[in-house]
């Protein structure tokens, strides 16, 4: 459990010098495997900050909590857009809850509080 990269979806950010998940992980835990797909070196080191999840342009990365904690089967995906971040939390029965959070810019913000 932890960070999971869907290899069929990852495109290693095309021709970018450094894929964005590899760039942004504060623990320097993401790397590109020999097959050209991103992966995490060690989920034990992960802080669950979701930086890699949000920055992935193809949304190949999802996050689950370690099974040694309480949550099983809850999955988080997200996408950082210019002025907002969109989120999807998939619950254990498959139901998906979505959220938008403002991320840059001036009011008015949607959603309101």
């Amino acid at each position: 459990m932890g960070i999971h990269v869907e290899e069929s979806v990852c495109n290693r950010c095309g021709t970018a010098d450094e894929p964005m998940c590899v760039r942004d992980c504060p623990g320097d835990l993401m790397f590109i495997q020999e097959n050209g797909k991103a992966a995490i070196t060690d989920n034990r080191e992960c802080w669950d900050c979701a930086a890699c999840v949000k920055v992935c342009p193809t949304q190949a990365i999802s996050m689950q909590l370690p099974a040694s904690l309480v949550v099983r089967g809850v999955t988080l995906k997200g996408r950082a857009l210019k002025h907002k971040t969109t989120w999807a939390i998939q619950l254990r029965d498959g139901e998906v809850h979505t959220y938008d959070t403002p991320s840059t810019g001036k009011p008015p913000f949607t959603p309101s509080l």
């Binding site: 669950d48 996050m63 909590l65 809850v74 988080l76 989120w87 939390i89 809850h97």
Partner: peptide, 12 residues
């Protein structure tokens, strides 16, 4: 989600 995403998962 904007601060401690795992907590949002637990609350959900």
């Amino acid at each position: 989600l904007s601060m401690a995403p795992s907590s949002a998962m637990i609350m959900s």
